[in-house]
Amino acid sequence: MQGADSDFVRRAIDDNDPLPGTRGFAGELDGRLVRDVLGRYPLFSENDDPSIWRFDPRDLDDPNPVPAGFARTQEGDERLWELPDPPTFEDEDEAISAVNAAVRASLDEISSDSLAVAFSGGVDSAVVASAFDCPLYVTGFPDSHDVEAAKTAAERMNREVQVVELTHEDIEHAVPEVARAIDRTNAMDVQIALPLYLTAERASHDGYDRLAVGQGADELFGGYEKVARADHRVEAETVRGAAHETIRTLPEQLTRDVCTLRAAGVGPVAPLLSDRVVRTSLRLPGNMLVSDDGVRKWAFRESARSFVPDEVATRDKKAVQYGSLVARELDRLARQAGYKRRMDDHVTKYVRSRLE
């Protein structure tokens, strides 16, 4: 069992407690494969034989991920937990204080030994970085948004950031490694994973075994436009419902991200995905996820003011594949290899060609 003691997981099953106080777990327990409710630890079995299982999909011939919150046996998958739907905060100050306390306690649990931080300059990674006196890394092509944002945020925080400046050769080298690590070839997943992989690869090369990331804050605290609008991209009709719907996408994303970082040689550390932070975020009503004047991640940003300068707490940032310019440059590599935009899903075709 990774992430938690076996007896602890047994109690969580017996008590039907989906958020028992961990940062996730997965593994074999009493003849079953068990994975936490948010899928923070990847777990796979052979598609035709659940008795053969691994944490890394590359170690299996036909890997099939265990669903988050489920147990898997030879008889099939059985749901163990679902995310709770607790009563919401009524007082804004109480909510901000609770978010602050949950984030601070989660950060305080983590050792800085052999730790580096993936730092994009946004509020999520800045809050994580504020807790540790360790190197900060940002990855991107020259003149990319993320590199500039990370430099200015680090300056405001009186820190230095190491820039992993990308080239097309870096992307070409990493594409097949990333695609194999995540067992996916679709363009979006590969675009997102590439900068994570290259950041982690540099940190590992520099001697760090663990990489802290800000993953989870956008999903937990209402960071997406589709949540703010509760638009056609979600089924829910309210901001809170849309946020909870987005939280349920985390297992798919975390499987990708954790496998990416491990393949690059580091162990992922995600303080904002601890059970206490998740439990607190689920209590936020819609107007504390997205304020009445449209500020996304409102409660998280307000609580972040005690960790980072106001300018950093309130800033927006682009998605990593766009802020780093990896998506643009991967598209360029695909077209240079003969996969033109008029072709259906030309970047995915390029990725698959690199695996052949």
Results as ranks from 00 to 15, higher is better:
M1H: 14
G3Y: 01
A4S: 00
A4W: 00
I13L: 03
D15M: 12
N16E: 15
P18M: 09
R23G: 03
F25I: 06
A26G: 02
D30N: 08
D36K: 01
G39P: 04
R40S: 05
Y41A: 06
P42I: 11
F44H: 13
E46I: 10
E46T: 07
N47H: 14
P50A: 05
P50D: 06
F55Q: 05
D59E: 07
L60P: 12
L60N: 08
P63W: 07
P65K: 07
P65F: 06
P67C: 03
F70Y: 12
E75D: 15
G76M: 02
D77F: 12
L83D: 02
L83T: 08
D85A: 09
D93W: 07
I96W: 01
I96N: 01
S97V: 02
A98M: 05
N100T: 07
N100Q: 10
A101P: 11
A102I: 01
R104Y: 03
L115R: 04
F119W: 08
S120H: 11
D124E: 07
D124S: 03
A126Y: 03
V128D: 01
C134N: 08
L136Y: 09
F141P: 02
P142H: 07
V147G: 09
A149C: 11
A150N: 03
A154P: 06
E155P: 11
N158Y: 15
E160N: 15
Q162I: 13
V163F: 07
D170A: 14
E172I: 14
H173C: 14
A174K: 04
R180Y: 11
D183R: 10
R184V: 06
N186L: 03
A187C: 10
A187H: 02
Q191F: 12
P195R: 00
Y197K: 07
Y197W: 15
T199W: 04
R202E: 14
A203V: 10
D209V: 09
L211C: 08
A212F: 06
G214A: 04
Q215N: 10
E219G: 02
L220A: 02
F221Q: 00
Y224G: 00
K226N: 06
D231K: 00
R233E: 14
V234R: 03
E235L: 11
A236F: 02
E237Q: 14
T238I: 15
V239M: 13
A243W: 10
A243S: 11
I247W: 05
R248W: 02
R248A: 05
L254I: 11
D257K: 02
V258C: 03
T260N: 06
L261S: 05
V269W: 02
P271M: 05
L272W: 01
S274R: 04
D275P: 01
V278Y: 01
T280P: 04
L282K: 05
P285E: 00
P285L: 05
N287R: 15
N287E: 15
D293V: 13
W298M: 09
F300A: 01
R301F: 11
E302F: 12
R305T: 05
E311C: 14
T314H: 14
T314I: 15
D316M: 08
K317G: 00
A319T: 15
V320M: 13
G323A: 06
G323V: 06
L325V: 12
A327D: 09
E329Y: 10
A334I: 09
Y339L: 10
R341P: 13
R342A: 13
M343E: 13
D345H: 03
T348C: 09
L355P: 14
E356M: 06
